[in-house]
Computed example of a mutant assay.
Amino acid sequence: MSRHGRVLVAMSGGVDSSVAAGLLHEAGYDVVGVTMKTWDYETSLGGSGVSRATSGCCSLDDMNDARAVAVRLGASHTVVDIRAEFGDWVIDRFQADYLAGRTPNPCVLCNTHIKWAALLKRADALGCEHIATGHYARVREHGGRHVVSRGLDAAKDQSYVLWGVAQDHLARTLFPLGGLEKTEIRRLAAEMGFDHVADKKDSYEICFVPNDDYRGFLARRAPAVADLAGGPFVHSETGEVVGRHDGYPFYTVGQRKLGIALGEPAYVVRIEPETNTVVVGPRSALAERTLTASGVVWGKWAGIDGEARLGGRIRHRDPGAPAVVRQLGDDALEAVFETPRTAVAPGQAAVFYDGDDVVAGGWIDRPARAQPEASPEFVALPTL
């Protein structure tokens, strides 16, 4: 009989999730390991020149590494095929966002709509009270709400990608690594006998995009994007056509090295899919103070009455900056930053903090100076 009950641990085969499972086992939980097969190898890798064995995270080798950790712990391990749910929501939305001129964030989508629901469904089937992952974040109950906070290791903190996890899902979630630093994780892996993962490199790729080559991925999934080549690069200040691009889906706000000369470095300022136009300009043209976000999920607070001064992040590696945030209805907000932010990209997430605690997050619709554009249609949530 375990001291703390059963916990379903998401095991990717990396050092983080392996140590998370080991820590929970040492704490007296009955650990059940699960590795989720989220994408179809042949569809994603076909024509990419990348083999299964070298395809980044979630490969067959990773699954075997996860199983080896579970065996050492004396825990059961299973691979769960969620390719249909993952593809219908995450991959289709990834493609749709680029075709809508937006910059997608598939990790948030996966956490919000796929991973937690899939884990909890399997946890219920296996009699597990909790689920756990190797994210560098913390969760606690405060004032009747479940609050996600930054992980202790600032360089590895993953609270940004967890803003969309629902309150009832957080209530059953454990983050064993939240109070640890990466160097300690690797030391613990060696001490636990997980030599095959202790020095394993972290994967920073999108799991279903081989070699992080999203252009090649899009070209294989949507061959019609080739017909968009030759659209205009338009200068943000003069309106002059200053070059021709490879197709607007292949560009993101803030991107440089565009192969055009403006007399100074050129950056993508805005994307206009309706006219196949990529607006470019100097770095100064990327500066924005105001953004709006929709699809907002509230964390530490259930909403904002009036205005609140919070720390705001506009991308995963963003250190954040102070902003005044105002609620616009149940699931929308407006944020005005004290100083201009660079490359506020529609489709990315804006996440707002009270100290280390996540207050709210949502999808950036547009910065104030950008032209209004319709958000892509969201496909229906999968039934898990």
Rank of each mutant, 00 (worst) to 15 (best):
G164H: 01
W363M: 14
E26N: 14
G312R: 00
G355I: 08
L310C: 04
A96N: 14
L328C: 13
V7Y: 04
R244V: 07
G355Q: 07
T133Y: 04
P104H: 08
E377W: 03
P273D: 11
A75E: 05
C57N: 09
T383Q: 13
D331N: 12
R256Q: 14
G361Q: 05
G5F: 03
A321Y: 02
L8V: 10
P106R: 07
I271C: 05
A10N: 07
D157L: 02
A224K: 13
L384Q: 08
G361K: 04
T103C: 04
S375H: 03
R317K: 14
F233Y: 15
G178S: 04
T277L: 03
V325T: 11
T252P: 01
N111A: 05
S203V: 14
W39E: 12
G74T: 13
G311H: 01
W163T: 06
L177K: 02
D227N: 12
V379M: 10
G101D: 00
G311P: 00
L333T: 00
K201Q: 15
Y353R: 14
D357S: 13
W39K: 10
V79E: 03
H25I: 10
D153W: 01
S159Q: 08
V296R: 10
A321N: 03
E129K: 15
R309E: 14
R52T: 05
A321F: 01
G259H: 02
V80Q: 06
E373Q: 12
C128D: 08
V242Q: 04
P265L: 02
Y136N: 13
T54P: 00
S236G: 07
A118E: 01
E334R: 13
A293G: 12
V9A: 06
E181W: 00
V241R: 12
